[in-house]
Design a protein around this nucleic acid. Structure first.
Length: 596
RNA sequence: GGAAUCGUAGCUCAGCUGGUUAGAGCGCUGCCCUGUCAAGGCAGAGGUCGCGGGUUCAAGUCCCGUCGGUUCCGCCA
């Protein structure tokens, strides 16, 4: 198709272009007609320029402009001039283009929802916007997020290349090694009854690349996990995958802090303080009730386990008496003495949702009077002690939870996050990073009746804790670390096991028989026997980085074609049924009891 | 696997303890209008109240089921 090609984009014309003859290509954004004069806005990804049609425009143009509708694609030729009434809200607001010629390159049906310049009205439902994703993606606010995404791609390639990293692609079709998340499976046509798996992460391949001597590997890798979705979780997602040889944890921290600082400087113009603070996992839980704490506000938890003996309240006494790790802890809720019974009930419901049996509360009104459903079981002295321990003042409330150690703290952590939201304690343009270190290597799985790796089975135990692998496995710390920012886990990694004997021992501890371990991870165990360098790495959650950098709490805003929370792609209809022929070729039969 | 919540015009929503012909703003269509930029004025069109079943003299409204959106718990090495 022959058409008038643009000389400029829709975002670049300024008063310095006045008098120039220009051609713009773009979409009709909005039309305003006044009989004799018509304005319309032409939009492309760089911006919006106002086009003017008046009585000095040719008759053909004045006829044609009557047919224009929203989202038509045009070529407009005209002369740049200063506006009589500038629009300070727009970068091109000082100028307009007086149309001399307009060509309709494509018409558009009336769109099912408006494409808004500043999201100035309530957006159409996300369901509708996902169905017409190509229209939603025309919104400038969404396009900006993808520009941030593009910047992060470029910075990642450049930074890691500058630091001697080699990019290697690892397979998308790999062997299924489920240990943790469910695999997405792909049936093999050439080997009926056998399946490839999509990678949950390139973990094993990048370790093998270290054994192969690549030394420093990096990949912007697509990963897949067949688990339920969340506001910040999609079944396919992207991570910056990094692995290094002959290094310690400190080398990785230094490298990643440097990368983070570069990104924050380039994208947001913010200088980050380094080094990032470090929090032991245990400390993070005890102070913030979370292994990914939002450090933009304080509101630290307070241990009140002494209430297990000092109070008459059975809920406290029994937890401490029954469990060796029974814990009572409290959280000051500043200014919440004004909360009603109903508001405390809501917080109590939240606590229950996170597995607590209940939540107690005490409030001190401005005169200092105590109000609490449990006051009569505590006595004045105990109340005063709670108040001084938690630092509650007149006008504050204190929330108290009693349970086993981790449960107690994570419930209070959820309450802390909720208070942070309700009281607007976290500033949106502030970024607080930390490394969470010294995770436990293992945890006990009650349903499977065995130890499972908290990180993954290839994570090295802390050297000094190796003797505990026999005697007290749950106390073994892992050489694992997470990078957290503003309540999100945005990276995680570890120093890996590079000795085959230790790796075999680890798998045995996790309950794998020798045969089972070799059937599943044999290729890694074998490779480890041929000279594996000490190595470790990290994976950065690319999509979550964009969320934080672009200021959204919805991961679908930063993925071009995302799935709904039930895993559907509303635009193209995936997943879909396939033809009987396709199934036959693969040797698959659908069991109708489980379909539909 | 579980919980909460939503589904009414093209869009965003209102619609009370079940009761006449289901409303508003925006958008859309037509007309008017020479400086708007969320333009303005006048007129008009537009509804299987997600779908299926039930209760009732009567259901957008109550009940059951189902599909879909969102959020959360479990899950996410």
């Amino acid at each position: 198709m022959q058409f008038l090609k643009r000389t400029h984009s829709c975002g670049e014309l300024r008063p310095s272009h006045v008098g120039e003859r220009v051609v713009l290509n773009g979409w009709v954004h909005a039309l305003r007609t006044f009989g004799g004069v018509t304005f319309f806005d032409l939009r492309d990804r760089t911006g919006i320029t106002q086009i003017l049609v008046n009585d000095s425009s040719p008759d053909t143009v004045r006829q044609l402009v009557r047919q224009l509708r929203a989202e038509f694609v045009l070529a407009v030729e005209g002369t740049v001039r200063l506006r009589e009434n500038p629009n300070p809200r727009r970068e091109t607001g000082l100028i307009e283009v007086l149309a001399q010629q307009i060509t309709i390159l494509a018409e558009s049906e009336i769109p099912p929802f408006e494409i808004l310049e500043h999201d100035e009205k309530p957006l159409a439902s996300e369901e509708l916007r996902l169905r017409y994703r190509y229209l939603d993606l025309r919104r400038p606010s969404l396009q900006r997020k993808f520009l941030v995404r593009n910047t992060l791609y470029q910075l990642a390639h450049r930074y890691f290349a500058d630091h001697g990293f080699i990019e290697v692609e690892t397979p998308i079709l790999m062997k299924s090694t489920p240990e943790g998340a469910r695999d997405f499976l792909v049936p093999s046509r050439l080997h009926k009854g056998k399946f490839y798996a999509l990678p949950q992460s390139p973990q094993l391949y990048k370790q093998i690349l270290m054994i192969a001597g690549f030394d420093r590997y990096m990949q912007i890798a697509k990963c897949f996990r067949d688990e339920d979705l969340r506001a910040d979780r999609q079944p396919e997602f992207t991570q910056i995958d990094v692995e290094m040889s002959f290094i310690t944890r400190e080398d990785i921290f230094d490298l990643i802090e440097g990368f983070t600082a570069t990104v924050w400087q380039e994208v947001l113009g913010i200088e980050l303080e380094r080094p990032f603070p470090r929090l032991q996992w245990r400390e993070a839980l005890e102070r913030y009730g979370s292994d990914k704490p939002d450090l933009r506000f304080g509101l630290e938890l307070c241990d009140l386990t002494w209430l297990g003996t000092a109070s008459q309240l059975d809920a406290f006494r029994s937890v401490v008496a029954e469990y060796p790790d029974g814990t009572v802890a409290g959280l000051r809720a500043p200014g919440c003495a004004s909360y009603s019974r109903k508001q405390f009930d809501e917080l109590g419901e939240l606590a229950k949702k996170h597995g607590a049996h209940g939540m107690a509360w005490i409030k001190w009104s401005d005169g200092g009077a105590v109000n609490s459903p449990i006051a009569k079981h505590l006595g004045d002295g105990v109340l005063e002690q709670i108040r001084s321990s938690t630092g509650a003042r007149d006008g504050d409330a204190v929330l108290i939870v009693a349970d086993r150690w981790e449960r107690c703290l994570t419930v209070l952590g959820a309450l802390r996050s909720e208070l942070g939201r309700r009281l607007s304690l976290a500033q949106s343009d502030t970024y607080r990073f930390a490394w969470i270190v010294d995770f436990p290597l293992l945890e006990w799985d009650d349903t499977e009746q065995r130890y499972v790796a908290r990180h993954h089975p290839f994570t090295a135990p802390a050297e000094e804790d190796i003797p505990l692998l026999q005697s007290d496995p749950l106390r073994v710390r892992a050489q694992a670390y997470d990078l957290v920012c503003n309540g999100y886990e945005i990276g995680g990694g570890s120093i890996r096991i590079h000795r085959p004997d230790l790796q075999e021992r680890m798998l045995k501890l996790l309950g794998f028989s020798s045969e089972e371990a070799h059937r599943r991870f044999g290729f890694l165990l074998e490779a480890l026997r041929y000279g594996a360098p000490p190595h470790g790495g990290i994976a950065l959650g690319f999509d979550r980085w964009i969320m934080i950098l672009a200021g959204t709490d919805n991961i679908r805003d930063v993925i071009a074609f995302p799935k709904t929370t039930s895993g559907l792609s509303l635009m193209d209809g995936a997943p879909s049924e396939v033809s009987p022929d396709q199934l036959r070729e693969l040797g698959l039969i659908i069991n109708d009891e489980h379909s539909s």
